[in-house]
């Protein structure tokens, strides 16, 4: 983890309430896809935890949805402005566990952290299938970006306006070596049920205090005891999650 001042070098809406922001600064603390950053905003006490969509030697790309006052303020920030952020937080997706033909499943704003993961898997020569689930056509983002990386992309919409009508679980391929996912809990629960017998890692979301393991604000009970979503996760082996609890 590092704290730094980051300059906004790109910022644009992808849909009505989902924005992409590119931050320039020290990215040396980023070690895995699926990690997150904590953004401090003027006038707000707590930082905002936001998953990292992509990163390289000097930039971090985040995609976030405006859900409250903090993200609303963030969405009005301009290129050239700076943000204080804690970077390189949490345990992310383990690229080494993918097998030959991994499946990536994203739901809504759970899609972004899968992007850098897909990049890394494709660079390692894996055959990557990505299922992106949205409610309706107007909410879709990043399907083209995943395709440009070279992944096989399937879009599902609940209303059937684009791609497969239904949920992500209605579009699962016959065979895949490992499943990586991020999205709302009901989606993860259904996906867990539909992918029994195949290994996988799911990224969870929780209201956080600190974001680096100090306050116990985001503890969940797993089959192996209590774990902190911010420090031990946000990505967990799907088998250790206590689906019954």
């Amino acid at each position: 983890m590092k704290q730094g001042i980051y300059t906004i070098v790109g910022h644009e809406p992808l849909t009505k309430d989902v924005y992409r922001m590119v931050l320039s600064g020290d990215t040396s603390a980023m070690t895995m896809p699926g990690q997150f950053i904590e953004i401090g905003l003027p006038g707000f006490f707590l930082r905002r935890p936001i998953s990292v969509c992509d990163y390289d030697e000097s930039t971090i790309t985040i995609i976030y949805k405006v859900v409250g006052q903090g993200t609303d303020v963030m969405s009005k920030m301009q290129k050239g402005e700076t943000l204080d952020a804690l970077v390189g937080l949490g345990h992310g997706f383990e690229v080494e566990r993918s097998g030959d033909d991994p499946l990536l499943v994203g739901g809504g704003v759970g899609v972004p952290p899968l992007y850098h993961l897909a990049k890394r898997l494709l660079a390692a020569g894996r055959e990557v299938t990505v299922i992106l689930g949205f409610n309706r056509a107007a909410e879709i983002f990043y399907a083209d970006e995943f395709e440009r990386l070279g992944a096989r992309v399937v879009v599902t919409t609940v209303d059937g306006s684009v791609g497969v009508k239904g949920f992500v679980t209605d579009a699962l391929p016959e065979k895949f070596s490992h499943v990586y996912s991020c999205g709302p809990m009901p989606m993860l629960r259904a996906l867990y049920g539909a992918t029994q017998g195949v290994g996988g890692e799911f990224s969870l979301e929780e209201r956080m205090g600190c974001g680096f393991g100090a306050c116990m604000g985001c503890s969940i009970m797993t089959k192996n005891g209590s774990r902190r979503v911010c420090k031990d996760g946000p990505v967990f082996d799907k088998e250790v999650l206590a689906w019954q609890i």
């Binding site: 707590l46 306050c215 604000g217 503890s219």
Partner: peptide, 17 residues
Amino acid sequence: FGNPTPRIAETPSGMIN
């Protein structure tokens, strides 16, 4: 183990845990 989540809320110039 403590309480169920959410355990954290933000306030003006502070927080609740």
